[in-house]
Write a protein that binds this DNA or RNA. Sequence first.
DNA 1: CGTCGCTTTGATCTAAATCAAGTTGAGTGG
DNA 2: CCACTCAACTTGATTTAGATCAAAGCGACG
Lengths: 230, 230
Amino acid sequence: MLNQSLTGSVVSTKISPPAPAPVINQFAEITGHAGLIATEFSYKKDEEIYGEDEPAEYVYQVISGAVRSYKLLSDGRRQIGAFHLPGDVFGLESGTAHRLAAEAIIDTTVRLVKRRSLEHAANVDVAVARKLWTMTANDLRHAEDHMLLLGRKTAMERVATFLLEMDRRLAVAGMMALPMCRRDIGDYLGLTLETVSRALSQLHSQGILGFSGARQIVLRNRQRLHSMDA
Amino acid sequence: MLNQSLTGSVVSTKISPPAPAPVINQFAEITGHAGLIATEFSYKKDEEIYGEDEPAEYVYQVISGAVRSYKLLSDGRRQIGAFHLPGDVFGLESGTAHRLAAEAIIDTTVRLVKRRSLEHAANVDVAVARKLWTMTANDLRHAEDHMLLLGRKTAMERVATFLLEMDRRLAVAGMMALPMCRRDIGDYLGLTLETVSRALSQLHSQGILGFSGARQIVLRNRQRLHSMDA
DNA sequence: CGTCGCTTTGATCTAAATCAAGTTGAGTGG
DNA sequence: CCACTCAACTTGATTTAGATCAAAGCGACG
């Protein structure tokens, strides 16, 4: 398991600073600012990036593709805590181990830097330290919102919240191409895949969304969806 | 709402450094190290400490009593994200607003420091910055564990997990005195108060726990409880 | 152009919610 | 000190949202 994250197929390795990517955020900001060494790496669909409780050697940023972070119970029940889309940083830990496992949902390329080198940069530069704290605080905010969803929202409310989240995060030209299957959505929302499917069908029949293929969705009435998200 | 946290009954205000409290943790560590000004303050049972989305002027530490942090849906459904017990820091935000509301569960005394002064200390001292990050990361870890509970555990598993958590955090001489009512427990576990009560009754009838009053609980078989927590 | 994984839809089941009384016990006032 | 009161808790009866079981569609890819 240790170094498992290095067993995927190598695509390229290069020094980063002027990031070449369609990714314009925080992580490049940090790697640029602190002169860290970033490497690119790719994973096939369903490949594990790291396991739960595995030593946290690297911090990752999605360049292309999509990742799920999750916990498992001993009998296989799974809770997905977050989906990571292009630009998102994941696997950032304050301690030495990953609290959730991570897998590529589809073929995915990530940028990665050694956790130790980020921590070193944080010791030297308060702005880096601040950024790490802010990124963890953003993950916490998402988790707090998601606890409310999991503990108290109905199935329809959960699906509405999910659609609005994905619309915000990955809609291009008013359409979203979901990278994940119905089971992943269910394991994110604390529902079964059948319940997710039924909720989507109902929204479709009400004209609130349109499909072009099961995973290509257009929201036709965001306002009504907002009114359903509780 | 602004400054609401100053409308409670004042008990005392004093400069902190050599903390007089039965509380030995992180927060005193920071206030001592960075020479911050800490104030004590008290809240009556069910009094609001701050509201959701209110400006985060202070960071708090429980000296005595107990606090619930929660979110509400518009129709009143409530999700308690965490209980804060003596020694715990709460209300720490990386941004400028509180993401959850906080209320005293019973009469409670807290120590508080201005968020701005903590942030200033973090700009000067990397160790303080690191501590703030670690505290937020610990909250995130708890939230991640709780998402698994809320999304995937059965009612009995949730109650077993709750009992083991409270046993770890507040048992004295093998007995725990719960400060919160069944409804609070339900709103923490994503259950109704009746379901919580039934699960506790079942554990009682199986001899796994003993009661001396509804909120005084002795765990008689932690191992069986662990085997039920999934 | 066939196959297999994904998705949808239908039928049935069930864990937990809801509705509804009682019971208990901590705190109050006589 | 005792009795009263009221909120908290327990327990029972019934309902229900979502899970589970089952069987077609469909569509992307080899």
